[in-house]
Nucleic acid binder design. Structure first.
Lengths: 207, 207
DNA sequence: AGTCAATGTTGACGACGCCAACATTGACCA
DNA sequence: TGGTCAATGTTGGCGTCGTCAACATTGACT
């Protein structure tokens, strides 16, 4: 409870390690989440992390989960900032907002973006842990909420709803990947904006 | 010119190293392209590769380029196998064929797929080397050829053509990524097929 | 025949992931 | 109140990795 005297037991090393990992990942991506470096950053000796994570992959997965939440938080922000009037235009604008947030996150927080997908766990297979996902910033759930909204307001027919999340997610994630690691990397910003508009246009038209 | 006697100079180490790298990448992805392992596989001593590649990243890029060509070859095969009659349906079928080939490649040759995008060079920025790209199996060029074909036969209006390659590529690459590394990894095959059909449907409808 | 640049080898260094053995500590119970 | 033990952190070591510097071998060209 007292101040941070130099004591043998850290007190909350588990969290501290994840925080350190997130910090390192921000600049260097998943490959920067080096076990010894994370321990170093947390002020403990190498190997301390083994009391909290099975191996580096395990730690990386935990760090990646945090990065995914950061993405979700940006999506929530951008969704809340939508000012469009009218149920249907507003629902479309909110979907577009999370799409733009996704790509913006990939381009501005490249390290986090890469880390989020470096050791990801599946949404298609039965989940293992992660009960309520903190405040609810799971990007996948946020996307589904936007699509449900579009169906509710009658913007897209209900029979098109099944699988729509996969189509939308694929388009946006694909462009992000191509812009970040792929052959479109280092595309000038203006062109990237144009690419984003095209992808969003084609996808919403096709939904 | 003679047989492969054990001589000091390998003769064609550059190619042999890339071949070894491709072999290793097939099973283990980019992280399996370990400099020392590649040298070992090629029958030379560690460090021999430094006479042909600046560092591991440089070798990895060369290996990735080869993997990309393998993807292109599958796309060519699948395009040639299309039997549809009528210019318009045929053009659509040929586009769909390369999309399916892309995703199939990602799922069956996961290591190669990951490696192809691990150290990719850009299509948006001015190219550096790679003059004629071998036999012409560059996936990007193949995609553009299909889209041009669609415009020629009148399947899509010409004003929709600019940027269409980015939309199509993003959708297909996105699904591939999600199925390979992402949260959709380990999705059962039937569901993956359904996802592929949905993504292709939404994208072609939106083009 | 002789020279030299290209090509391959050897040995070393620091960093990494991981293992095994050991040290410290707080919580719990007699 | 004092003792015990499992949780937590440390130390040291092993094998592997990427890279560097120095050295060895060779074919091509004069």
């Amino acid at each position: 409870m007292s101040a941070e005297k130099s004591r043998y037991h850290h007190g909350n090393l588990h969290e501290a390690l994840i925080d350190a990992g997130v910090e390192l990942a921000r600049e260097g991506g998943p490959s920067a989440v080096v076990l010894r470096a994370v321990n170093r950053e947390a002020g403990v000796s190498h190997n301390a992390a083994y009391r909290h994570f099975a191996d580096q992959e395990d730690l990386l997965a935990a760090v990646g989960e945090r990065c995914m939440l950061h993405l979700g938080e940006l999506m929530i922000e951008r969704t809340a900032a939508v000012r469009a009037r009218g149920a249907v235009p507003r629902a479309w604008a909110r979907l577009e907002a999370i799409g733009r947030a996704y790509i913006e996150f990939a381009r501005t927080e490249t390290g986090w973006f890469r880390t989020a997908f470096a050791g990801a766990v599946g949404h298609g297979a039965p989940e293992s842990t992660v009960p309520p996902e903190g405040p609810g910033a799971d990007p996948y759930l946020l996307l589904n909420a936007r699509l449900d909204e579009l169906v509710e307001v009658g913007a897209i027919p209900a029979e098109r709803r099944p699988g729509a999340e996969i189509a939308a997610w694929s388009a946006v994630h694909g462009l992000s990947s191509l812009l970040v690691d792929g052959p479109l990397r280092a595309l000038p910003d203006a062109e990237a904006q144009r690419a984003m508009a095209i992808v969003l246009g084609v996808t919403t038209r096709g939904l």
